[in-house]
């Protein structure tokens, strides 16, 4: 009797449940892996579909995939262009980093590019996509408003700043969407605004030359990840690697997250000559009890 009673106690589950590690990371981060339709426009009998992850345009980096249909059959345009324009309450027009000409993905049957939306859609602030595509020598143009919403996943955060060289830069996180307590490959896009020459003339279709960013070439993004909460004392992690550019134009580095929670990616952006464009060194001191010091260039993430 006693034995069986004890065995029952033993076999019955533990007093406290073990943490479900997968669910633990899922609580802070929802990972979107499916491309879904975010917008559909119709122009002269052609249907243009724009697919993004989770079918939503988010502030920050978005990969966009565009397909065209005529009736129910797919058509392959020769070229597709897309220019996002943000118009604020003062009717000032700006853009975000984007690939103006979409790349044809022959195997997958779509055209792809990226758009970094630098603002969320709001009252008095609206995003429009100006698209241009050619089929059989005929060029079609359209412009349609789109809704850009907040990116709830801080791992896809972005920042826009003016560097010491007076230029306007954008750094947008591309990957990982869902970090792990591990070595994570960190991918970011780094862009510089190409100053408009003169004032853009009002036009039905804006001049893309007046609204462009370029991928900065050969810069280095120095990385120092920290946990800035007072309880963590600006804890850091070992074996991180600064972000350097690869052939695809993006910047790749390694970030080690030692536990879940709030992290700050402290950056120093260096140009080709190794001169700091933005960012400051974070002291190595372990400072429990106070908010951790951050670089003047940083992104907060949470997982």
């Amino acid at each position: 009797m006693m034995t069986s009673a004890i065995l029952c106690m033993a076999i019955s589950s533990c007093t406290k449940d073990k943490t479900d590690y997968k669910a633990e990371i899922d609580t802070a981060v929802t990972e979107h892996l499916q491309f879904k339709e975010a917008a559909r426009f119709v122009k002269d009998g052609y249907t243009i579909r724009i697919n993004t992850l989770n079918g939503t345009f988010y502030k920050g980096y978005n990969e966009v995939r565009v397909t065209l249909e005529q009736g129910s059959s797919a058509v392959q345009p020769e070229e597709v262009y897309c220019l996002p324009i943000f118009t604020d309450a003062q009717a000032q027009q700006t853009t975000g980093p984007h690939g103006y000409k979409l790349q044809q993905q022959v195997d997958s049957g779509y055209f792809s590019s990226y758009i970094v939306f630098t603002e969320e859609s709001q009252v008095g602030g609206e995003w429009q996509l100006y698209m241009r595509f050619s089929i059989g020598g005929t060029t079609y143009r359209l412009n349609e408003p789109v809704q850009v919403v907040q990116q709830a996943n801080k791992n896809l955060n972005m920042t826009r700043f003016t560097g010491s060289d007076g230029e306007l830069y954008v750094i947008a996180l591309i990957s990982p969407q869902k970090p792990r307590i591990a070595e994570n490959q960190l991918v970011a896009g780094i862009y510089r605004f190409n100053r408009a020459i003169g004032t853009p003339a009002p036009a039905e279709f804006p001049d893309p030359e007046q609204f462009s960013y370029e991928v900065v070439q050969g810069y280095t993004l120095k990385l120092d990840p920290r946990m800035p909460e007072p309880s963590m004392g600006n804890h850091s992690s070992p074996n991180n690697e600064d972000l350097n550019q690869r052939d695809d134009g993006r910047y790749y580095g390694v970030v080690n997250y030692t536990m879940t929670g709030n992290w700050t990616l402290n950056f120093i952006l260096l140009n080709q000559l190794g001169e700091a464009v933005k960012g400051t060194v974070v002291p190595n001191d372990f400072t429990p009890g106070v908010n951790g010091v951050k670089s003047e260039l940083y992104l907060d993430i949470l997982f």
């Binding site: 309880s231 536990m259 929670g261 949470l302």
Partner: peptide, 11 residues
């Protein structure tokens, strides 16, 4: 974290 409404830290 001091602010208990915030995300806990796990490892």
């Amino acid at each position: 974290p001091q602010d208990r409404s915030r995300q806990t830290m796990f490892a």
